[in-house]
Design a protein around this nucleic acid. Sequence first.
DNA 1: ATCACACGGTTACACGTGTAAGTTCGAGGG
DNA 2: CCCTCGAACTTACACGTGTAACCGTGTGAT
Lengths: 331, 331
Amino acid sequence: MTEPATKRVTSADVARLAGVSRATVSYVLNDTPRQTISAGTRDRVREAAAQLGYAPSAAARTLRTGRSDVVLYLLPDWPIGPEVGLALEALSSALARHGLTLVVHPGNREDRPMTELWKAITPAAVIAYAEFSDAEIAAMRSAGVALVVALSRKRGHGRELAVPQELLGRRQAEHLVRAGHSRLGYAYPDDHRVRFFAEPRLAGVRAACAARRLPTPVGLTVPLDPAAAADAVRRWRATGVTAVCAYNDEVALAVLAGVRLVGLSAPDDLAVIGVDDIPPARLAEPALTTVATDQSVLGAHLAATVVAAMSGRVAPTLPTGVVRVVTRASA
Amino acid sequence: MTEPATKRVTSADVARLAGVSRATVSYVLNDTPRQTISAGTRDRVREAAAQLGYAPSAAARTLRTGRSDVVLYLLPDWPIGPEVGLALEALSSALARHGLTLVVHPGNREDRPMTELWKAITPAAVIAYAEFSDAEIAAMRSAGVALVVALSRKRGHGRELAVPQELLGRRQAEHLVRAGHSRLGYAYPDDHRVRFFAEPRLAGVRAACAARRLPTPVGLTVPLDPAAAADAVRRWRATGVTAVCAYNDEVALAVLAGVRLVGLSAPDDLAVIGVDDIPPARLAEPALTTVATDQSVLGAHLAATVVAAMSGRVAPTLPTGVVRVVTRASA
DNA sequence: ATCACACGGTTACACGTGTAAGTTCGAGGG
DNA sequence: CCCTCGAACTTACACGTGTAACCGTGTGAT
């Protein structure tokens, strides 16, 4: 049952086969700049490594250098949508191109103190949605974590890396205003855990309205339930709202369901715009207009920022045109 | 800029503070069965460890034991929905309870050969959707990976761990038949990458029909586009189909959109049932009937299976009642 | 002829842990 | 009194890697 488990291929094996010392193997495979190795030896070592299928032990490497090539990505504890999956894939690809490995960990802060995890892994960087306390950040730093990145809004501690959430709200409002609406509503999510995202988005909508001297948007919490959403729709109608920005596509779909339930129709009676462009958006009745983020360029940008920060260089600026409005029928 | 980075707390520090040897610390903290330690010493060691905030280095531990406590979960390269996130969270919690750490890696087989990853990490177990080749499995085994779990249907190589996909299709068909339908359709996804899931689900529908001596379901590929879905709906109607099982909720939503587009209505003209119960399902027009899987018990079961297999015990059987039909308006 | 020096390597150590193999010591049996 | 034996520890080694420090050798300058 318990197999002999043919021993791991180590750099010593490669060295033996190539007829050099183990140090030489290390120098060749890591392209150590200080050390010069003849072209002939380089080839022999590379050949031997490939032939044996050698892959260095991450454990030993981490132990030696004190830092692993792992970037830890802590998922939030609220439900994630398909767009997160896309972003992760892009981020992973981009990081891999820089020799870094993305590791995603579901954020169950309760089960096991997060500290155990990064103390154990000693990742090169930690990316998380929620903010860390100053004490946590200090602890990580001293534990060898090179970079701590929070994707939420407060500035100063980390860097603002994700798409500025305000921008999403602003784009929503701009689209609605351009379509002739002046009295807007905001559909707030029912889940208090996402307020880190919802608040800045709402702030973006508010800012856009204020800039145009329009009345401040009337915000209502909209659960993912047609009947509850119908209530919200009635209240918006009563206050003269003609178009609503929703926190995301799911909330927007709820609003659309509410509109249908009260016997009205979008966008004539109430225009609706979402965020994310999830697949069901274009299948809704009516098809949902939404603000989409290009997750692949976003992932690449995030990776570039992490890499830059680790090598001490200055972070690149977020490329423009990452978010765009997908115009469909609902607004 | 580069901080002094207060050195890592090691077991040697704990030993010094507790006034014992480093080995004793290891014995205490790991509850090594062979070794007896007095209660007094145990307390002193534990106290010291807590006081210093000691967490053992995963790298050193892995290097020494040759196996890490990481369970590697390889995500597929097709888009994932919210249900995957829920399952991961449950799995992570359950594994943590057994001292294992879940690590999720987006499956970009192109960027970096997967071999590099598990050769580097030496995980305790690997969970993946797609199947591995025999060579890959042999390589993992010999590299020390304790268990390889394939979530796909082919038996023999790995273990069938997830919910049998056939069951999902069967439940769909049973619900429709019980509602009085006899001529069924199957809405196949447009993405060839998910055939590992789609084929067994379709097989389940076929089996349910065959068991009741009903005609074999007529399968059509349905892209996530209302117009294309409308075509499919017309063809189903032409062949006398009165109800369709969709690969998942998104495809089902597309079918519903198609139904509306051709001026018909569900479930009277065509009943539709999906799989997954994603949030937009209950917000659709009409609300989508679907087959839901309890991700939390599934995650716990998956964790139990992994743990059992690692310790050589026999795998538990999948608890019954994990999948249930959520009846709404569409079927 | 001598020296400095870049080239192309090798030797040796450290990283932090688990654990097999000792070591000390007090108790209990003959 | 001696021997054995278990409890309670300690000592010592191995895991696989990166890298600083050392070393021989040819080569061009003095």
